[in-house]
Design a protein around this nucleic acid. Structure first.
Lengths: 153, 153
DNA sequence: TTAGGTGCAAATCTTTTGCAGAAAG
DNA sequence: CTTTCTGCAAAAGATTTGCACCTAA
């Protein structure tokens, strides 16, 4: 945790930015909720516990800055709000999303499934791939199990 | 073209909705611009040529209705506006996007690449897949060629 | 006649921006 | 001191909603 914050601090400083208390509190919230896909509003509410005086605009500015630095990934699941995800250090391990249309949960799976496809895109379409995003919509294992139980009763 | 409109009309009527002149004009615009990924505002401007009295709210309502009926797909490329895409009749031929980070173009490719992955998700993760979305960010063939020419000169 | 539709304007919601003051190097 | 950063409030932009009127089975 501390090591990752230190690393982000250095990334910021190397570009002339500061790791202010507000930014540090924001980063801590993101680290503590790495599994989730928080919206700016979510982050704001959680950061307020650590730094009650923080403003929503500062959270937006911090998230934007970290996105530009590729510390975060800004994404959109179609529910009208942007969500943010810490990028793992190994930038070639993309994560894909399993979005449950029933309970709204978002699980992540790691995989390199797409590498063969990317090679094919470069070869057949002359498209130089920089990044990709793969989301599946469906019913998650929790909701599947819930349904099964109801069927039995 | 007329056949596809007729089909959509029947889909609407089977659920108690009507294909009003405004809705028909909207659908025609979508059919005529099937290659593009129009925003609601884009559609509104184009529909105005055919039906100048139409209101923006009606366009939004029509796009929402057609999305719910799975005639359209509502999507988000991260530029702050929702974009809409006609779904091909064969619902198992998903299209994927090649988004150029340089010129902003969005090309589509059709493929069933992901079917094996979907089977694996059902088996290994107990996740029942309903739909998926696959987008690649990178440099498109046009920009690649442009760069090549500049290198030569 | 009744449910579905429409245009307009107002409301809502997320995100961005202008600004004056605060903090850090 | 000079640049970066902050909180606040206002603004901007996209989308939704309330409402009175309209229109077709």
């Amino acid at each position: 945790m501390e090591a990752r914050i230190e690393k982000i601090k250095q990334q910021l400083q190397s570009q002339g930015f500061k790791l202010t208390p507000q930014r540090e509190a924001t980063v801590r919230v993101l680290l503590e909720n790495e599994e989730d896909h928080l919206s700016a509003e979510d982050v704001f509410m959680l950061v307020k516990d650590k730094a009650p005086e923080i403003g929503l605009a500062t959270v937006y500015r911090t998230l934007e800055l970290l996105s530009e630095m590729h510390v975060l990934e800004k994404m959109n699941f179609g529910d009208g709000v942007a969500r943010y995800d810490l990028r793992s250090d190994n930038s070639h391990h993309h994560h894909h999303h399993l979005i449950c249309v029933q309970c709204g949960s978002v699980d992540e799976i790691m995989d390199d499934w797409l590498l063969p496809l990317e090679e094919r895109l470069e070869r057949d379409f002359n498209f130089r791939v920089i990044d990709h995003r793969l989301d599946f919509q469906g019913i998650c294992h929790r909701c599947n199990n819930k349904e099964k139980k109801q069927d039995e009763s």
